[in-house]
Each structure stands twice: as C-alpha cells, then as structure tokens.
C-alpha cells in the first residue's frame, strides 16, 4: 500500500527536520517548505497530499492563508504553532483546520493526532502489512503468512498500536491509555503479560523489543 504523503510548512529548520524525521520513521512520505508562498506555488503543480502540518507564523504567507489554499485541494490541515492564545485556536479551528497542536508537543501526540485525522478523512487503508503479517482493522484479524492467528481483543488492539507506530518506543503507561483507555485502572504489568502473549502467538520475540526505561517497540 502507498505511504500517506504529508506536507510540512515550518520555518524553523530544526523543528521541520525533526517532524520530517519522525514521520519518516512512522512510515509517512514528507515534503518540507520553509516559506508559505513557496509552499503555495509548489502546491499548484503537486497537491496529492493526504495531510498538511502548518505553522501559523511562517514567512511569505501565514498559516491561516495557507489553510484556505489547502481547503481548495481538500487537504486536511493540522496547525502546529507556538501561539497558544484562544483567539488563534478559534480562528484556526473555525477556519476549517482538523486539529491545533501547541508547541512544545510530544512526538507521540503528534503521530496519534495525525493518525486520527487520516482516519477521519478515510485516508488510511484498513489493511496494514508489516513484516510477515497482514493486519485487517475492519475484520479485526491478523494473518501471518496467509494463516489467520487467533488473538484476544486486547491483544489485537495492542498489536495494532505497535504496528501503527512501528519503530517508535511507547511507554507502558501510554500503551495502557491507548489500548485499554484512560479510565482503565490496571497495572502496567497487564501490558507485559499481553506483550508476552503476542510474542508467543506471533513469534515476534525479536521484533517486539523491550527498551529499558521507555517501553516497547515493534521493529
């Protein structure tokens, strides 16, 4: 399946590169522009993007003006900005942006929000192929080498989160929140038990890595 393409407009070199690097690891294609006007003119020829990450204060053309252009090409927009005053948020969201993330942000948060926006705009496929597995989110099934593996619901959800964020270590606390929900009062030990089940059932002993002091990562 084709990778989702994301356009980034951010004038801070360090941050633009950081986002790009993250998205690359999370299996997205990225294009970075440091200047709003430059991005706008480039979009005229190539606008096959699934998502745009826009800084509000960029030279050339500001984020709010770029948002209008993105709407023309039906590209969903997430604002990424240091401006955390309510007026800007309201202007961004009522203007048609899908989300508004204030700097400084956590990378995992950015990835989750990107995923949610892509899901809302139906730009993710229901099937994710990773390693020798084929995860079908609609059917809630996992096939390994074409052979269906029976997983419990929570084991499936855990695998889905790890697969969607492959190569990214996620802490046990975050896994609890993302799989079992914020209200779940279980211990982080639950995560370890389910990870153990996944490793055993799918033979992923080497691929699901334990990163000390951080959490688990599917490679």
């Amino acid at each position: 399946m084709a990778k989702n393409r994301i356009v980034i407009v951010e004038d801070e070199d360090a941050i633009a590169r950081m986002i790009a690097m993250n998205l690359k690891v999370a299996n997205y294609d990225t294009q970075v522009y440091f200047d709003g006007a430059e991005a706008a003119s480039a979009l005229e020829t190539d606008h096959a993007y699934d998502l745009a990450l826009l800084d509000v204060m960029v030279p050339g053309m500001d984020g709010f003006a770029l948002l209008e252009i993105m709407k023309l090409y039906q590209i969903p927009v997430i604002f990424l900005t240091a401006k955390d005053d309510l007026a800007s948020k309201i202007q961004g969201l009522t203007g048609g942006a899908e989300d508004y993330i204030v700097k400084p942000f956590e990378v995992l948060e950015l990835l989750v929000r990107i995923e949610k926006v892509l899901e809302r705009s139906n730009k993710v496929s229901h099937v994710l192929k990773i390693l020798n597995m084929e995860i079908n989110f609609e059917e809630h099934t996992v096939r390994q080498n074409g052979q269906e593996v029976a997983l419990k619901p929570m084991e499936f959800e855990l695998l889905a989160v790890l697969a969607k964020n492959k190569n990214i270590a996620i802490s046990r606390e975050n896994l609890l929140k993302m799989v079992w929900g914020i209200d779940y009062l279980g211990e982080t030990r639950t995560v370890d038990v389910h990870i153990g089940q996944l490793r055993k059932k799918l033979g992923l002993g080497g691929q699901i890595k334990t990163i000390s002091k951080v959490g688990y990562r599917l490679e």
Binding site: E12, A14, I15, M18, I19, M21, N22, V25, A82, K103, P104, F105, E106, V107, L108, N167, I168, A169, I170, I211, V214, G215, R217
Partner: peptide
C-alpha cells in the same frame, strides 16, 4: 521553538 526541537529530538533518540 528551541525547546520543542530539543525535546522532540531527545524523544526520538530515546524511543526510535
């Protein structure tokens, strides 16, 4: 801006 960059890169180095 620099803090976002620093914490972002540090997180990447830690978890990716």
């Amino acid at each position: 801006t620099p803090m976002t960059a620093i914490s972002g890169y540090a997180q990447m180095l830690l978890s990716m």
